[in-house]
């Protein structure tokens, strides 16, 4: 099983260089992820030491920073092109909140939680396929890709201990606006989800009449603290996020999806 004593062929050399490069890529790409995290979370007491060791690196300037940015771009390009992403940070912090999106459909112009108007069909709440109907008795198998999609745009909004309800509502309004509007927002994704879920609702039921209002509601459950359990979770606590009025004309440059404003308890147009 000894290696051939003759000189290596071109293919052997290329393969060897690829292996060495791949090993370097793994070590460098992961090292850069750690360095990036360390830079952002470096304790104040370590700043002088970091400055002496790597001048300017902490403030994202200097030669080391320049070198790291160049290597970062090259390794990120390779990682994306070969689908070898190296973001290994799974569950670094585990929260107590679990949020499920739900659609609330109405066939009248009333508010989402108002009772149904006479002669109108009652409002329907169409829960996510991932939300347990009974949190004390369920079994889940499959659907994780849909859960991942729903998780990506889920928004956890709750009151902090040190704020009033008015302050909380103002903060929520800002969060909802940032979440739904702007170039990095989830607005288009959420709208696509709402349309898709409405199609699913119509396909699963006999009710083919298009609702006049479709609301997106975040249903949040809170995991109990160990000394409060059982029950192990409480909820759902519902908060409105957005509204879509199918068939309703929208202004030029506006999206059919409207953002909920918890301060004024109304909806605002969302720019495309």
């Amino acid at each position: 099983m000894s290696a051939s004593s003759t000189s290596p062929s071109t293919r052997q050399v290329y393969l060897g260089l690829f292996i060495a490069g791949q090993l370097l890529f793994l070590l460098i790409r992961n090292g850069l992820e750690v360095a990036d995290y360390a830079r952002k979370h470096l304790p104040d007491a370590m700043h002088p030491a970091a400055e002496r060791l790597a001048p300017g690196w902490r403030e994202e300037r200097g030669h080391l920073n320049q070198l790291m940015e160049t290597v970062d771009r090259a390794t990120k390009t390779y990682a994306q092109a070969t689908e070898q992403l190296q973001n290994w940070s799974l569950f670094p912090n585990v929260g107590r909140d679990c949020v499920f999106p739900a659609l609330c459909m109405r066939w009248d112009p009333a508010a989402w939680s108002a009772p149904a108007q006479p002669s109108m069909p009652p409002p329907i709440q169409f829960l996510s396929d991932n939300e347990p109907l009974d949190i004390k008795d369920f079994f889940r198998l499959g659907n994780y890709r849909l859960r991942k999609f729903e998780d990506s745009f889920a928004l956890t909004l709750k009151m902090n201990d040190d704020e009033t309800e008015k302050e909380a509502r103002e903060r929520w309004a800002t969060r909802i606006r940032e979440h739904l509007e702007g170039p990095q927002s989830y607005g288009d994704m959420i709208f696509a989800y709402m349309r898709w879920r409405l199609d699913q609702y119509k396909a699963r039921t006999d009710n083919k009449v298009m609702p006049t209002q479709v609301f997106l509601v975040g249903r949040r459950y809170l995991v109990s603290l160990p000394d409060e359990a059982p029950p192990f979770a409480s909820g759902p606590f519902e908060l409105l996020l957005a509204r879509w009025r199918p068939g309703m004309p929208v202004g030029a440059g506006d999206s059919p999806l409207e953002m909920y404003d918890p301060v004024s308890d109304s909806f605002r147009a969302r720019r495309k």
């Binding site: 499920f100 991932n130 192990f232």
Partner: peptide
């Protein structure tokens, strides 16, 4: 030391209730 307790209570992830 809370992580496992919280993960096992996460209604998004778990197959069956924490109970």
């Amino acid at each position: 030391g809370e992580s496992l307790y919280l993960v096992l209570g996460d209604l998004n992830l778990i197959r069956f209730p924490h109970d």
